[in-house]
Design a protein around this nucleic acid. Structure first.
Lengths: 133, 133
DNA sequence: ACTTGTTACTTGCAATATACAAGTATCAGA
DNA sequence: TCTGATACTTGTATATTGCAAGTAACAAGT
């Protein structure tokens, strides 16, 4: 990947629109979810039940890194192997995931309730930043 | 529009994935945002600064209605004119929009802070449902 | 040495979605 | 009759997605 090039200017200054320009697709936030669960490696993301394809995964990992939501670092050289880790900016996305989760749990009974490990990990990761009201 | 046909089965039972299958695109949630602001009509959605195109708007309004996020009703016949209105299911999406807004406000200083009218309207619309823990 | 397996991708191609421009139908009002 | 408004639909080019296959660099087994 790694097609450089200026990112197109934002459609507007609306914060919702701005967020959607970054993560408004079917896959980016499921990778973020996996990172919150503690997954770090390419193969782990591939194993998720949604079955992301390899080209999309590679593309999204690149976008996620370039957007500063996660960092990539080699945990091994020769052959190079990488791990991805959420940044604070990425961790700050937890409340969005949390509210999506609550919404679906309310309106789609076939969805499962996230395990405490997710909720607690996310709460801790995003810290008091997740609080409000 | 109005291509019927069964909706494809969900990728997984994960509530986050399920939500993204519905609203995981660049436009659906900006239309929801407009509905929260109080916009009701086709032309009002078109006027938003993001400049949605007419075919996408028509498609999304159809999807939004079919998903039960809003209802469509004719406010006038001959010629038929319609207004869209959030359902409870749609109003329940407010916390997601709110958290997206907060996230972008924190990480993208060029985004504006939503007016109180948005926040209050949303809080009221989603009511105590948005509360908890 | 050769084969198999693992990891992290890339490449090719068809299908679908999006953007952009233009057109349509139905009416109201001048 | 002409202009304008509203709510779309249609056509076409481009971009994104999904699916299958291939690649590179090694490790371990036979």
């Amino acid at each position: 990947m790694s097609e450089r090039g200026k990112e197109p200017r934002a459609r507007s200054r609306c914060p919702i629109s701005r967020t959607l320009e970054l993560v408004g697709d079917r896959w980016t936030l499921v990778i973020l979810r996996d990172l919150f669960i503690g997954k770090k490696r390419y193969g782990e993301f591939l194993d998720s039940p949604e079955r992301i394809t390899t080209n999309i995964l590679a593309n999204r990992l690149d976008l996620i890194e370039r957007a500063g939501l996660a960092t990539r670092r080699a945990y091994q050289h020769r052959p190079a192997r990488y791990e991805y880790e959420l940044t604070e900016k990425g961790r700050d996305m937890f409340p969005v995931l949390y509210e999506m989760s609550r919404w679906a749990n309310k309106h789609y009974p076939e969805t499962f309730t996230p395990p405490d490990s997710f909720t607690k990990a996310g709460m801790k990761a995003s810290g008091a930043r997740a609080k409000r009201a």
